[in-house]
Amino acid sequence: MRKRLYVWAALALIVTSGGLQARPVSYPGGWTALWFTDAIGDALWLHYSPTARYSVGFRAERNRDSDFVFYGGQYTRLLKRWNAPGSQANLYLNTGAGFAFDTEGDDFTPRGSALGSGFLGVQADWETRRWFASYDVRHLVIDGRPDQFVQKLRLGVAPYIAEVGDWHLWFMVEGAHRDENEDRFSVTPLLRLFKGPLLLEGGVSDRGEFLFNAIYRF
């Protein structure tokens, strides 16, 4: 397990230290707070972009399915952005390391000793003012526990084209595949509302599980 963490760290270093063209995750000096709730848990990120090319921050997450909490540092690098007259596409690398703790049921109080943990993820998106598509994959390793692999595909359409400062509305659908203790698939139709620095998303999956995401930039 420890060997695998070293391999990840090495891979992340190779990818992020190369001469890859990169764009900001946010604008230089910008902060981003993100909250995610889905079928298996919740996550909170707080990110700062020191330059136009990457962000560093804190990530806390709790997993209701596999009964653990994770606290650690996270690094997100915009590996590549494609800017076109009517569209934008991005490729991000997302990696981090920290500690996980066992929990029990709905009680998220950390129990027992800290378990070394790390993850590596890639996110890609393409967006126009009308259409949206994204793919997101993440592999999480926790010392002494089964690996967790999650991939998500999302498609969206805006029913109207909003201008800067207006409320932007998106109809989206997200398909998720989680390979934890067993394969698990879910489909979640959701609404995205977006105005200025605030983005909100809410939906209910085909399994009746609630999704809520919020992003705020400042």
């Binding site: 946010s26 604008y27 952005r81 800017n83 076109a84 009517g86 569209s87 934008q88 967006e127 126009t128 003012r129 800067v164 400062g165 932007h168 977006f194 105005k195 200025g196 620095p197 983005l199 930039r217």
Partner: peptide
Amino acid sequence: GLVCDFCAI
């Protein structure tokens, strides 16, 4: 590349 309010901000 201008597609959303985050771009404008």
